[in-house]
Design a protein around this nucleic acid. Sequence first.
DNA 1: GTCTATAATTAGATAGAC
DNA 2: GTCTATCTAATTATAGAC
Lengths: 209, 209
Amino acid sequence: MSTLASRPAGIETRRAILDAALDLFSERSFDGASTRAIAEQAGITQPLLNYHVAGKEELWRAVVDDVFERFRMSMARRLSGLRGVDDITVARLMVRHFVEFSAANPQLHRIIMQESKRAGGRLDWLVETHVRPLYENAVAMFERLTARGELAPVAPEHLYYLLTGAGATVFVMAPECERLTGVDPFAPEFVAAHADLVVDLLIRATTKE
Amino acid sequence: MSTLASRPAGIETRRAILDAALDLFSERSFDGASTRAIAEQAGITQPLLNYHVAGKEELWRAVVDDVFERFRMSMARRLSGLRGVDDITVARLMVRHFVEFSAANPQLHRIIMQESKRAGGRLDWLVETHVRPLYENAVAMFERLTARGELAPVAPEHLYYLLTGAGATVFVMAPECERLTGVDPFAPEFVAAHADLVVDLLIRATTKE
DNA sequence: GTCTATAATTAGATAGAC
DNA sequence: GTCTATCTAATTATAGAC
């Protein structure tokens, strides 16, 4: 009883660990984020990490599960508000929502980019567990647009990486953008303008005329 | 005499170190690439690294200097073959060449992306030494196109990250692309198709109608 | 559930022989 | 110019007290 009142419950500690680990893994990469630094940012000691998670690799997976789950929930919630809307408008609004989520959660793409550079166990797990379902959703969207003549018949591999690259890179590289241009890409006006451009890029640029 | 004949000269060893370090730094990040692993891939022992370079940080800078120099030379050579060509065609061909270079040298963008996620000394040096001159070239190109009515007046910060994100991401993330889609993005047909799309994206999509 | 103390491993860097 | 051997510090993980 007294312990429960005087210190955070285990569930809160786990939450603090996941939040700290997301920031440090995404900024510093898997190798660059030490468990000591993660523990320090979470406000606990390093050995306590190993009480809450089985090891660094499992911590990384828990972090990735967590941020992807938030992404899927966010996209699903946005989509659920668009019942009865035509496919082209749905596509525009979902692409826009994707850009906005990427601005609000740059850690997602930072981790994906980090692991996608090198073949290995973490990439295999990431692709099969989380990326492939998203990719298949995107491909289905491309196919619906192409069937309606709103998209030129371009191979989905190109469209997927054009979309994610154009939409997320500036937020992944936000510290560089700020230093290079003086502009804060997380400012709401910047995010809105960037989302508009990406939507036009995908849906107008490749449209048959 | 006999030592010069029986083993690589120092200059060749330095070259081997730079090549190995470029691959490992770009794939595994600064922290993930150990000097032991770099030395092993270069075919030497780890302490010999510290004979040829002053330390890990200086090795990283030498690697970045080297790959950026190759990028600038490649772009300058392409441009020098386009004297007398109109601005819009030059822009199209230079964007295309940029995409092709990014496919042939994904290490460049892998290193930039890695360091751009986090403010710090390496990012400061990278931006001021290498990125800013390239950015200013790109901005000048955007301004020429806008003055001729070939580009809508969009802020250069957006265009720069749309261009680099759309053009380079699929090559940065090539291992993921291959596992996810089964397509090798380094195949010449893929690179050509991707370059065409990026050119149309930038120069057609944002064109005033 | 959290701590202090510490083991085991690996990192970057140096000494000194050849 | 390159090696073997080694130092010091930092890393992940574990033991055991509270």
